[in-house]
C-alpha cells in the first residue's frame, strides 16, 4: 500500500451576468417619513445574501447606515422586474439598479435638505451616519430623519428613485462568432494538494489554496461564505457528484443524499481563501459576480494533482476511485 501525494494548479476566468446580456433588472428606492429607506426588487435570495448586499449598496449610495435600509424583494405585486438570480448576475445587475435608484432618491433628499438649510444641494454631503452636512461647514447640518419628515409633511416631495440596469443584448455573428458575452470577468487560481491510495484509488484532498479576484468584496464575510462553500462544491464535483454514475448508461442514478455523493464534514480539505480586488468598470462599487466561478478551479486543480500523485489521467468526471484504479491497473499492465 502506498499513499502518494501530488499537487495541481488551475487558473480560470468567469463571465459575470447572463451570457450575451439582454438581462434587465430594475429597482425602486423610497424613504419612509422618518428617513428609513425601502428598496423594492423582484430579485431572489438563494442564500447568497442578496437582501443584505442590496441593503449595503443602497445605504452606501444614500449615505445612511445599513440598518436604516429595508429590502422588500421577490413579490411580483410590488417589485419591478428582475431577470432572476443566476449566472452570477444578482449582485452585479441588481446592485447597479439599486445604485441608480438610490442616487435619484439621494438627489431628492439633498434638494429637500438644501431647502431646509437654505444652501445649494450641490454643496451638501452625507456623513454616512444619517446626517447631511454643508461641505466645509459641518456644523451646519440636518439629520436625514428631519429631511424625510420635511419632505413628507411640509414640502410634498417623494424621496424616491428608479433604477434600471441592462447590458444590451449581443447577437453572435454567424460565421465568425464575434460577440460580447460579458462586460466583466472574475478570475481565480487554485492549487490543490491530494493524497491518492494507489491500491484503492481513493483520493483525499489535503489542502486547497484559492486566490479569487472578484472586483470588490462588498461584504467580506459574505464573500468568504460563498467562496468557502464554492470551493467545497468544486472538490465535490471533481471527485464525487453525478446523477448518472455509469453515464451514458441510465441505470443506478442516486435518489437520496446517501447515494448522491458529496464530501461530508469529515472529508474537508484545509481551505485557504485569498481575495484580490480589481474593480470592474461597470460593477456596483466595482463588484463582479463570484458565485459561480468560485466552484470551478478546484476541479481541474484536483485532476492535475491526482495525475501528479499517481501518473494517470482521469479525463472523465467525476474522478472516482474506480476510474483511478482502472487507470492504475491499465498503467501497470503496460
Amino acid at each position: 500500500m502506498a499513499i502518494r501525494r501530488g499537487r495541481g494548479v488551475a487558473a480560470i476566468n468567469y463571465p459575470t451576468g447572463m451570457n450575451l446580456g439582454g438581462d434587465p433588472t430594475q429597482a425602486l428606492v423610497h424613504s419612509t417619513p422618518t428617513g428609513n429607506f425601502m428598496v423594492t426588487l423582484s430579485s431572489v435570495d438563494l442564500g447568497q445574501g442578496m437582501k443584505q448586499i442590496m441593503a449595503q449598496i443602497c445605504a452606501e449610495t444614500i449615505g445612511v447606515p445599513t440598518d436604516r435600509v429595508v429590502v422588500d424583494t421577490a413579490d411580483t405585486d410590488t417589485g419591478p422586474h428582475c431577470m432572476g438570480t443566476f449566472a452570477s448576475r444578482g449582485t452585479h445587475r441588481a446592485g447597479n439598479a439599486v445604485i441608480q435608484a438610490a442616487r435619484e432618491a439621494r438627489q431628492v433628499m439633498l434638494e429637500v435638505a438644501a431647502e431646509e438649510l437654505e444652501v445649494n444641494a450641490s454643496d451638501l454631503e452625507t456623513d454616512g451616519q444619517g446626517n447631511i452636512l454643508v461641505k466645509g461647514a459641518p456644523q451646519k447640518s440636518i439629520s436625514i430623519f428631519d429631511v424625510a419628515l420635511s419632505a413628507h409633511f411640509k414640502r410634498g416631495r417623494s424621496i424616491s428613485g428608479r433604477g434600471m440596469f441592462l447590458i444590451p443584448r449581443s447577437y453572435p455573428e454567424k460565421e465568425t462568432g464575434a460577440m460580447k458575452p460579458s462586460t466583466c470577468y472574475a478570475h481565480a487560481c487554485t492549487v490543490a494538494e491530494v493524497e491518492v491510495d494507489d491500491e484503492t484509488g481513493e483520493v483525499t484532498v489535503l489542502t486547497v489554496k484559492n486566490v479569487f479576484e472578484i472586483g470588490r468584496a462588498l461584504n467580506p464575510k459574505m464573500v468568504e461564505q460563498q467562496l468557502v462553500g464554492g470551493s467545497w462544491m468544486g472538490i465535490s464535483h471533481a471527485l464525487y457528484e453525478t446523477t448518472e454514475p455509469y453515464y451514458p448508461n441510465r441505470d443506478h442514478g442516486g435518489t437520496d443524499f446517501n447515494q448522491y455523493l458529496m464530501p461530508g464534514p469529515g472529508d474537508l480539505a484545509e481551505t485557504e481563501i485569498i481575495v484580490l480586488e480589481r474593480p470592474s468598470a461597470d460593477g456596483p462599487y466595482g463588484a463582479k459576480g463570484p458565485g459561480e466561478m468560485c466552484a470551478n478551479p478546484q476541479i481541474p486543480a484536483v485532476a492535475n494533482a491526482v495525475f501528479d500523485a499517481v501518473g494517470v489521467r482521469i479525463d472523465t468526471l467525476p474522478i472516482t476511485p474506480e476510474r483511478i484504479l482502472r487507470a492504475l491497473k491499465a498503467q501497470a499492465a503496460n
Binding site: 442564500g47 461564505q225 468557502v228 462553500g229 464554492g230 462544491m233 461530508g264 464534514p265 469529515g266 474537508l268
Partner: peptide, 22 residues
C-alpha cells in the same frame, strides 16, 4: 472537532462547505 464532525454528520448542508458550521 472530531466529535462536532460526528455530531453533524447526519445533516446535509449544500451552501457552506460545513466548515463555518463546525
Amino acid at each position: 472537532r472530531d466529535e462536532v464532525v460526528e455530531a453533524l454528520s447526519g445533516n446535509i448542508c449544500r451552501c457552506t462547505g460545513y466548515e463555518p458550521i463546525i
